[in-house]
C-alpha cells in the first residue's frame, strides 16, 4: 500500500507516461519540450514554495498575482534609468513591502489574511495599471535577461537553477530549521502553538513577507523571460499556484505541507497544459480535459492521510 504522501509522485509519473505514450510522435518527450516545461513552470514553482509556508501556517495570500505584475513593472521601469541591480532591488522591495503590509495587518491587527490580501490584491493590481499608464515596458539589458529567465547553462535553462534554488532553500527552511516546525505548529493548532511559546504573530508576519518576496522574484523571472513587463503578467497564476501546492500534499487549512510536493505539483500543472496543447485539442476541449485530470490528481493526492479512497 502506497502512503498517500507519495501519490503526487505516482500522479506525476502516470501523467508523464500517459503523454509520453499518446504524444510520442508529437515531440512531447523531446529534450526541448521537457526543458520548456521546466522554463514555463519556474515562476509558479518559486511562488508555490512560498505558498507551502503560507498555507501550512493556516493563512492565504490572494495578492500573489498582483504582486508579480507590480514588481515586474517596477523592475523593468527602474532598470531603464538606473540599471539592472537597482531594478531587481526595487522589484524585490515592492514584494517585501506588500508582504510586510499584509503581514503587519494580519499579525498586529489580527485581521484575516483572506480579507487583507483580497484588499491588497486590488490596491496592487490598480497600482500596476497606474504606474505605466497601462503600457508594457520592454527590457533590453542582456545581462539581466540572461540571468533572470532567458539564459542557459549548457543545455540546462537558467530558470531551472532558480527553481531548484527556491526549492532547496524552501526545503531547508521548512524541514531543517525551527521556523518550519513553528509554521506547521501554528497552522495545526494556533492556541497550542502559542501555549508552547511560539510567537504566532511573528510566524504569520514572516510567511506573508516570504510570499510577497517570492511573488516579486517570480515577477522578475517573468520579466527576464518575456524581456519586458506588463500589468497582466502573473495575474492568473494564483489558482495555478494553489492547485500545485495542494496537489503536492499541503493542506489548504494548515498544519501539513511539502515543498518537494509543491515542485512536483507545479510540474504536473505545467505538463498538463503542455501536453493538452500538443494533443491538438481546441482551447475549450483543453479546459475540460485539464479540469478532469486535475480533479483526478486532487482525488488521489489532496485527501487527508488515512481517508479511504
Amino acid at each position: 500500500m502506497i502512503s498517500r504522501r507519495y501519490f503526487v509522485y505516482v500522479a506525476f509519473l502516470a501523467l508523464l507516461a500517459f503523454f509520453a505514450i499518446t504524444l510520442h510522435d508529437d515531440g512531447f518527450l523531446s529534450q526541448t519540450n521537457l526543458l520548456n516545461i521546466v522554463r514555463q513552470t519556474t515562476p509558479v514553482t518559486v511562488m508555490a514554495v512560498a505558498v507551502v509556508f503560507v498555507l501550512s501556517a493556516g493563512e492565504i495570500d490572494l495578492s500573489l498575482g498582483a504582486v508579480v505584475a507590480l514588481s515586474a513593472l517596477v523592475t523593468a521601469d527602474v532598470m531603464q534609468d538606473h540599471g539592472a541591480v537597482l531594478g531587481v532591488a526595487a522589484g524585490l522591495g515592492v514584494g517585501m513591502g506588500v508582504g510586510a503590509v499584509n503581514g503587519g495587518l494580519v499579525a498586529v491587527l489580527r485581521l484575516p489574511s483572506f480579507l487583507v490580501t483580497l484588499a491588497s490584491m486590488g490596491v496592487v493590481a490598480g497600482l500596476a495599471r497606474t504606474i505605466t499608464d497601462l503600457r508594457s515596458v520592454a527590457v533590453e539589458d542582456r545581462g539581466f535577461i540572461d540571468i533572470f529567465g532567458s539564459g542557459d547553462v549548457g543545455p540546462v535553462p537558467g530558470l531551472a537553477f532558480w527553481a531548484l534554488g527556491a526549492v532547496a532553500l524552501g526545503q531547508f527552511g521548512f524541514r531543517h530549521r525551527r521556523f518550519g516546525a513553528h509554521v506547521l505548529a501554528v497552522g495545526d493548532n494556533r492556541a497550542a502553538a502559542r501555549a508552547t511559546g511560539i510567537r504566532v504573530d511573528r510566524v504569520k508576519f514572516a510567511v506573508l513577507v516570504i510570499s510577497g518576496t517570492a511573488a516579486a522574484l517570480a515577477g522578475i523571472l517573468y520579466t527576464g523571460r518575456v524581456q519586458g513587463a506588463s500589468y497582466t503578467l502573473g495575474e492568473q497564476d494564483l489558482l495555478t499556484v494553489i492547485a500545485a501546492v495542494v496537489i503536492g500534499g499541503t493542506r489548504l487549512f494548515g498544519g501539513q505541507g511539502s515543498v518537494i510536493g509543491a515542485l512536483v505539483g507545479s510540474l504536473i500543472m505545467g505538463m498538463l497544459t503542455n501536453g493538452l496543447i500538443l494533443s491538438g485539442l481546441s482551447s475549450s476541449e483543453q479546459l475540460v480535459a485539464q479540469g478532469l485530470l486535475l480533479l483526478l490528481a486532487i482525488t488521489l493526492t489532496a485527501r487527508p492521510e488515512g481517508d479511504p479512497i
Binding site: 515531440g27 512531447f28 526541448t32 520548456n36 514555463q40 515562476p43 518575456v226 492568473q236 497544459t273 496543447i277
Partner: peptide, 13 residues
Amino acid sequence: AARQKAELETVEA
C-alpha cells in the same frame, strides 16, 4: 503574455 510565450514554445515542439 507569459502564458502566450509558453504556448508558443510548446507549439514549436
